[in-house]
Design a protein around this nucleic acid. Structure first.
Length: 184
DNA sequence: CGTTTTTGACCAGCGC
DNA sequence: GCGCTGGTCAAAAACG
C-alpha cells in the first residue's frame, strides 16, 4: 500500500489532448502486469543530465501515442543542504513525452509551481512544480520542445504516498477514460 | 486573507 | 578558478 496507481486524466472542457496511464514505481513487481495498453513505452534507463534530448528522431508521424518514458535508476533522498558526504545523489526521473497543446496536464494532484527556467536550445521555458501535499515531495517539471510545439515533456520525480486529491467529482470521467484505455 | 504564481537571486555541478 | 547551465529559494505580486 505504498504505491498508488496514478492516472493522468485531462481537464477536459477547455483543453483537449489528454492521456491517461498507470505507472507504478518500485523494485517489486507491482501492477506492471498492466504493461502498455497502447500508450506508455518503457524505455531503457538513460540519464539525461542536460540537453541530450537533442537527438529526438523528430519523426512524429504517429498521432498521439507519442509517449516515451525514461527511467533513471538509483535513488537517494533529499538533497539541498548537507547530508553527509555520501556518494552522488541520483533520483529516479520518469519523463513522459506527450502530445498536448497545453503545458499543464492535470494528473489529479495539486501542484505548486516553484520555479521556471529557460533551457538552452529551447525557446520555451521549463516549469518546476511540486506536490503541495505535506510530506510529499514529489516534483515534476514540464518542458516543451522547441521544434514541436505540440510535444510536452513532463518529468516526474519521486512517488506520491497519498491518494489523489481530486474529488470524486471527475472520477466518473476518470473511470470512463480508464475504460477507454483498458478496453483494448 | 490564504494560497499560488511570478521572478530574480542564489547555489551546486561541470567544463574549460 | 571562472563562467555557464540547471535547479531551488524566497519575497512580492496576483488570484480566489
Amino acid at each position: 500500500m505504498e504505491n498508488y496507481p496514478q492516472f493522468f486524466p485531462c481537464s477536459s472542457s477547455a483543453s483537449s489532448g489528454s492521456l491517461s496511464m498507470v505507472t507504478s514505481q518500485s523494485n517489486h513487481n507491482d501492477f506492471q502486469g498492466n504493461k502498455s495498453n497502447g500508450f506508455l513505452g518503457l524505455m531503457s534507463e538513460m540519464e539525461v543530465p542536460a540537453a541530450s534530448l537533442n537527438l529526438n528522431n523528430s519523426n512524429n508521424n504517429n498521432i498521439m501515442s507519442q509517449t516515451k518514458s525514461f527511467v533513471g535508476s538509483e535513488n537517494e533522498e533529499k538533497i539541498g543542504k548537507k547530508k553527509g558526504s555520501e556518494k552522488k545523489i541520483r533520483k529516479p526521473r520518469y519523463a513522459f513525452q506527450t502530445r498536448s497543446q497545453v503545458d499543464i496536464l492535470d494528473d489529479g494532484y495539486r501542484w505548486r509551481k516553484y520555479g521556471q527556467k529557460a533551457v538552452k536550445n529551447n525557446k520555451f521555458p521549463r516549469s518546476y512544480y511540486r506536490c503541495t501535499h505535506q510530506g510529499c515531495n514529489v516534483k515534476k517539471q514540464v518542458q516543451r520542445l522547441t521544434k514541436d510545439e505540440g510535444v510536452v515533456v513532463t518529468t516526474y520525480e519521486g512517488m506520491h504516498s497519498h491518494p489523489i486529491e481530486k474529488s470524486t467529482d471527475n472520477f466518473e470521467h476518470i473511470l470512463s477514460q480508464m475504460q477507454i484505455y483498458t478496453s483494448y
